[in-house]
Each structure stands twice: as structure tokens, then as C-alpha cells.
Design a protein around this nucleic acid. Structure first.
Ligand SMILES: NC(=O)c1ccc[n+]([C@@H]2O[C@H](COP(=O)([O-])OP(=O)(O)OC[C@H]3O[C@@H](n4cnc5c(N)ncnc54)[C@H](O)[C@@H]3O)[C@@H](O)[C@H]2O)c1
Ligand SMILES: NC(=O)c1ccc[n+]([C@@H]2O[C@H](COP(=O)([O-])OP(=O)(O)OC[C@H]3O[C@@H](n4cnc5c(N)ncnc54)[C@H](O)[C@@H]3O)[C@@H](O)[C@H]2O)c1
Lengths: 275, 275
DNA sequence: GCCGCTTTGTGCCTGCGTTCACAAATGAAC
DNA sequence: GTTCATTTGTGAACGCAGGCACAAAGCGGC
């Protein structure tokens, strides 16, 4: 299949296919925010541009901080929080600095303030309604999972193509037919669509979600989705995860061509005590 | 030149806490391979050092190539494959160049060769046995999923703490009790452990897996795991994924402080014709 | 009120990852 | 055999992210 010849790539590179987010370390494009300068909507908050990698970590910090708050902690130091999150303390401080300056030198950060600020930046001050499409093995697990509603992501619609499933409640919500995706999503103001259908159906489902006004898609099907520019896609590809792990095993095996497997490297427990 | 006081990074960088892989765009540390120079084990293959980000993409290319092979394709150009994978063609070629030079200039790549080479580099030439711990909603889905065995990752052990589950076969494999993790993993040469237990149990389960000689862990529980240095952890945190999506929605909303929601931006199909 | 201790916030440097652009290689046509 | 069209492979430039180290900033003790 040699296909298209002719044109070098004069206008080629433009066709940003968009959509297929590489499984993991992609999303490089630093979340740009054109410095909304005027528009005094947000008072003192000058939402700079936060690196995508930092956003991912902020979500982790938020979970840890919430847990700390529940246990009664009122302040944390960057050292504390960073070890709990498994990152460098300098990196943590830099990440927090994207929020603004909410720490007290010599003391640390106030847990409640930090929680509030991270929620603000991540847009968690309002709820984001979620729809799950494909109520099979995985879809059932997602629909039943309590961790989403608890964090501001209520699941408010379920879809499938299987007639036997239509109308059956899963996790308290009845399953609707695939064809109603656009309608229902628009009606219920769904903002996040989760795709857990077989790969072959994923693109079609995706198109309908977009049609229904869904702005974000979390895709579990191992396919690269095509979406319009204003829609954000993230992919969770478990097979890829396993293959990355496999790579590391192989690499390690190559590096130590000693005994066979060297199993029983029990190493006691991995208590990374300090540093 | 600011002189640089004190040790630049002489021996500092060691304190790597290791373990808690940030949810997403982390794993930066370019998979180092000390250039095994001698040791003629692998004939012509000089396993260089492949960037982690590239490894993730290679796994995606592999899936696409496999599908193409099934449809009878024998060769592909970088242009074709790159659009299918949703990446830049230059990036694709660079990624493939980490494998060695297996393309034919003016023609393209032979699908079969590429598949073989990627499998070799990812360590997929041998099987990696998988164990799943925590056979709840998610664990059931994972245990039943056919996509893993089909890709060289046979699930060969299931564990849970629930007495009602012990002995019950799920996806053809009976569930074993938690306590037997070290024994069973060692016996069956499990190399990858998947954790799908409640967060509170994750660290304990992780320790036992390590005790059983498991080298890689895929963690679904929203906690940061502590592991010894020789164990590789990857985390799949769905709440974090949703929060990253939320961030993008919020960001976009901030940028366009026009009408309310501007829904119905159906935009027909996402054919991003030209830049 | 001053001093010293602690912890934040950040400037700077380094290194990885992405992208461009082009030389080299190859096959086909004549 | 030469030339042309095509596509690979990669050197080099660039931009982002990570990490160090220190100045600035509070707090508490004396
Ligand atoms: N189960 C896992 O652990 C796992 C792991 C990795 C990836 N995945 C991926 O997740 C997706 C779902 O996996 P699963 O195990 O739940 O599969 P499944 O077969 O159990 O469920 C698929 C569901 O989608 C429904 N469906 C089929 N066609 C549809 C369509 N056109 N529109 C809407 N719904 C449709 C089916 O009725 C079924 O309920 C697959 O793409 C799979 O590759 C699953
Ligand atoms: N279900 C989802 O869609 C989803 C989404 C995101 C994250 N998660 C995470 O995945 C994990 C599992 O989720 P789930 O919905 O399957 O939960 P679940 O409650 O359905 O299943 C948990 C299973 O773990 C078992 N278990 C409890 N303690 C254990 C222990 N000490 N050792 C071994 N097994 C033990 C339970 O018996 C149960 O079978 C949780 O950490 C959850 O936060 C789940």
C-alpha cells in the first residue's frame, strides 16, 4: 500500500488527526491558558498555564490531602506531602506554585486551603456528569463504582446495544439504548463519556457522544478515536500497560545475564524507610 | 555563569523514592540500558536506550500492525501507520528507529518484520503470567477479559480474601486465598501482579506479591505503593483521569466566557480538514 | 526587638522528547 | 546504466519538565 504520492508534505502536517492520545506519557502540550488578562471573572486568580504532567500530580495530591483532612490534619509541609505522593519535594512545591502562593514559610500549607485551591484549578467546584457506554464486564464495574460519585463525578446515564440490558438498572440507573445517546446526553448535560464497548463499536459510540454535546471522553477500547478539535480524549489501554511492564522485565533480564531467574529475591519488605 | 555552588548533582540524585508512579505523564526516566557491549547474547541487537514514551507508542503500533497483518497487508509506509496511530510520521519513524533499521527506503516497512521486532524489544517473545488480586467488580472484569491471554499475558492466578469466593472459578481459574499469594506466585512463576483490592489492602497485597517474586505490578487502587527498587509499578487511576478531563473542561470554559454552555456545538463530524 | 530555625517559592541549569528537514537509499522507468 | 520519484533514517534545533540550591519570609525563643 504505497498510496498517496505527490505532494511532499506542504500542507500535510496540518491535518492534526487529534484524538488518539498516546497511552501514556503523551499529552505533552502544556495546558495553555492565554492569560485571560482582562475579564475580571476570577478575582485574584490569574490562571497561568499549568503543565499537563503537573495537573495529573495535582489530582494525586488532592486525594492525599482529602485523606489527611479526614484524619484531622490541618497543615502539611511540602516534605510530608511529597513523600506521601512519592515525588520529589521540590517538584511538589513547584506544582503547588501553579495554584498561587498559599503556603506559609517556615510552617507549611493549610490542608483545607490547598484542597480548595486544587479543586478550583481542576474545575471540581462544579459536578461533571458521566455517562458509561457498553455495560459489559468493565461497564458494570464502572457503573457500580462508588469512587466516582464520591469525587464529584456522578454517573447519570448508561447505554448499551443489548436488548436484554435495556431498562435494567445497574448501580441504580437503568440502561438506555445506544440510539438515545445524543438525546439523553444533551438532556442531562452529560460532560464526560466513558466508552467500554468492544473496539469495533467505539468510534460510532464516540461520534454519538460528541453529537450529544459531550466534551470529554475516557476510552477503554483499544482503538484510536477520531474526534473534533474541541473534544478531549484520554485513553486507558490495559494491554499497553502490561506491555510496558513486559518491556521493563525484558530490559532487566538483558542487563543481568547471570543466573536464570534469580527469583526468591524476596528482599524482605520494600520499606523505603527514608530518603 | 552563576558559578554553581555546592555539588551540582554529584551523588545527590540517588534518593529516588521509587514506587509511586505518577498516574500519567510520569515515567520519564528513559529506560536506560547500559549498553551491554560485551555479552554476545543477542547477536546483532544492540539494545540501545529507548525512551519510555516511545515504548508506550510502540505497543500501540504493535496492535495496529497486528490488525493490518490480519487483513492481509504486507507492507506499510510511515505515513500510513502514523495516521492510524494518531501520531506525527516523523515521531513514528524515530520510534521505529529504536528497533534498528528494518525499513526499505522508497517502499516502507514489512508488517511482519515490524511486528516481530516490536515484540522482541517489548519482551513479548515469551509469555508473562499474570495474577489478579481482588476479585470484586473490577477483578471480575479483568479475569474474564479475553484480550490479555490473546496478547501473551495469560491470567494464571486469582486471589481474594472473601471466603465465599475461594475456590470459585472465575474466567476458568479458581480463586485462591490471599495468604497463598507468595507460594502460588512463586510456584507458577507469575511475573505480573494486578491489584484490584480496596485501597486499604493494596500495600499489604503488594508486599506479598513481591514476596512471591513478582517483578511488575499494575495497580488500580488509588494509593501510592512502596516497593523495592527492582519492582516496577504502574498505576491506573481512573479518578485522576476524570479529574484531568475536568481540568480541560474548566480551562476551556474559562477561555470562552461567552454564552453559557455553548452546547450543541455539534460541529458535524470532526473532520479537521486543514489546520 | 533581634536572632536563628524552618519551610516556601523560584531562578537556573540540565536533559529528555518532539519536530523539522534533508541526505541517503532504493526501486522503477526508460 | 542513468535518472527520477519516493520514503526511510537521523542530525540538529527547540521547548518542556525535572531537580537543585538558595534567597525570601515567617515563627518562636530569648
Ligand atoms: N474487561 C476488561 O478487563 C478489559 C480490559 C481492557 C480493555 N477492555 C476493553 O473494554 C471494552 C469492554 O470490555 P468488556 O470486557 O466489558 O467487554 P464485554 O463484551 O463484557 O462488554 C461489552 C458491552 O458492550 C456492549 N456493546 C456491544 N456493541 C455495542 C455497541 N455498538 N454500542 C454499545 N454497546 C455495545 C455489549 O452489549 C456489552 O454489554 C472492550 O473494548 C475491551 O477491549 C476491557
Ligand atoms: N470498579 C471500578 O470501576 C473502579 C474504578 C476505579 C478504581 N477502582 C479501584 O479498584 C479497586 C477495586 O474496585 P472494585 O470496584 O472491584 O471493588 P470491590 O469492592 O468490588 O472488590 C474488591 C474485592 O477485593 C476483595 N478484598 C478486600 N480486601 C482484600 C484483601 N485484603 N485482599 C484481597 N482481596 C481483598 C474483596 O473481597 C472484593 O472482592 C478499588 O481499589 C477501587 O478503588 C475501581
Amino acid at each position: 500500500m504505497v498510496a498517496q504520492r505527490g505532494r511532499r508534505n506542504g500542507a500535510a502536517a496540518h491535518k492534526r488527526t487529534r484524538g488518539g492520545a498516546t497511552p501514556d506519557a503523551d499529552n505533552a502540550p502544556t495546558a495553555e491558558i492565554p492569560a485571560v488578562a482582562e475579564n475580571g471573572a476570577d478575582p485574584e486568580v490569574r490562571a497561568k498555564s499549568i503543565p499537563e504532567a503537573a495537573v495529573a500530580r495535582l489530582a494525586v495530591y488532592l486525594r492525599i490531602l482529602s485523606a489527611m483532612a479526614e484524619q484531622g490534619a490541618t497543615t502539611v509541609s511540602s516534605e510530608e506531602l511529597s513523600t506521601a505522593a512519592g515525588v520529589n519535594s521540590a517538584k511538589l512545591r513547584k506544582d503547588l506554585s501553579y495554584l498561587g502562593s498559599y503556603g506559609t514559610r517556615g510552617v507549611g500549607y493549610e490542608v483545607a486551603v490547598l484542597v480548595g485551591q486544587i479543586e478550583r484549578v481542576l474545575g471540581l467546584t462544579r459536578q461533571h456528569k458521566v455517562a458509561v457506554v457498553g455495560i459489559g464486564n468493565l461497564g458494570h464495574a464502572l457503573a457500580n463504582y462508588g469512587g466516582f460519585p464520591g469525587r464529584g463525578f456522578p454517573v447519570e446515564a448508561l447505554f448499551d446495544i443489548d436488548p436484554d440490558l435495556i431498562g435494567v438498572p445497574v448501580g441504580g440507573i437503568p440502561v438506555t439504548h445506544l440510539d438515545d445517546i445524543p438525546q439523553v446526553c444533551a438532556d442531562r448535560q452529560i460532560s464526560i463519556g466513558v466508552i467500554a464497548t468492544p473496539p469495533a463499536a467505539a468510534q460510532t459510540v464516540c461520534d454519538r457522544l460528541v453529537e450529544g454535546g459531550v466534551q470529554c471522553i475516557l476510552n477503554f477500547a483499544p482503538v484510536v478515536l477520531q474526534v473534533p478539535e474541541h473534544v478531549e480524549v484520554r485513553k486507558v489501554d490495559l494491554a499497553v500497560e502490561l506491555q510496558i511492564l513486559s518491556f521493563h522485565v525484558a530490559r532487566r533480564a538483558d542487563n543481568e545475564p547471570n543466573g536464570k531467574v534469580a527469583e526468591s529475591t524476596v528482599a524482605g519488605n520494600g520499606a523505603v524507610l527514608q530518603s
